[in-house]
Amino acid sequence: MPDSKVHRVNKQVFPLLAPGVRSILQEIDVNTWQKVEEIRLREGRPLTLCWSGGEAMLTSRGQVSGAGEAYRVKPDDLSLTLQLISNCSLYAFEEELRRGYLTVPGGHRVGLSGKAVLEKGSIKVLRNINSLNFRIAREIRGIANYVIPYLITSSRQKPWSTLVISPPQAGKTTLLRDLVRCLSDGMPEKKFRGFKVGLVDERSEIAGCFEGSPQMDVGVRTDVLDGAPKGEGMMLLLRSMSPEIIVTDEIGREEDASSIEEMINAGVTVIASAHASTPEELYYRPTIKRLFNQHVFHRMVVLGRSRGPGTLELVQDPVRERNLYQPKTGGR
């Protein structure tokens, strides 16, 4: 399975890079690719690979070096890469240019930064792109297996509503994706059937939709609403797709909270994620605090990086205020 990541990068990411950059990256060995999470192209600055807790600047022969000798990304590299990403038509991605990223086949995301053009005080479009960040999508099947038993209890027909929290890059999205797949496909060996899952993927991160079709395996009973605002999207799916479970990423705004309340009132299980390192941090966020006070979430899953990204740190029942899982060694 690890080789498949290298294979995916080769097949899906390399064709999108300018030939100059591509030939450098082709020199990188397989072991490095295993851990690489980001490829960063900044105009006039070193070509850099990033992973959690490390980075490497590359020379024009693909060797790791200091900033001094590193290959500096040329403006032509950037513009050609942009053309290759956008099928020679950046103008067809105005919505993406406004949001600052686009999703490419394979579900990888390319973040963009440049000059923002404003209209009525908000960003209308990005021009003169000077930084690109390829975030390589991880698809780790089976990562949800450890969590599933806490979400489903034999006394109840449905999984509990769950909030997954973690600091950035600790595997929230990866876990959420695998949860969606498991809940949607069902797991006969754990004796539960598949559920109808509605996935509101505002930032195309979970399903990695490219032109509307999911690039990641999100299960057989999943309906993906790609690019819709979470609040509105949840309501739409509730009306149109009769989901049993609604899944969404990174909640926090007022309208997200009120939509989630609607879901719970309609008897739909909600599985969501939020940025936070510890459960305590959440209580400073009024919207999420309100959801807890209303006993919306019966399970809280905390991820961390203490033993690599995606380490399960804690599973809690916030309603009964009980810890269901806590590593014996004490994660941190």
């Binding site: 513009s79 956008s86 038509s89 950046l90 103008y91 105005e94 053009v117 021009r127």
Partner: peptide
């Protein structure tokens, strides 16, 4: 700038 700017620019 063919394919390299937004609609307006094109």
């Amino acid at each position: 700038s063919l394919g390299l700017s937004d609609r307006e620019g094109q």
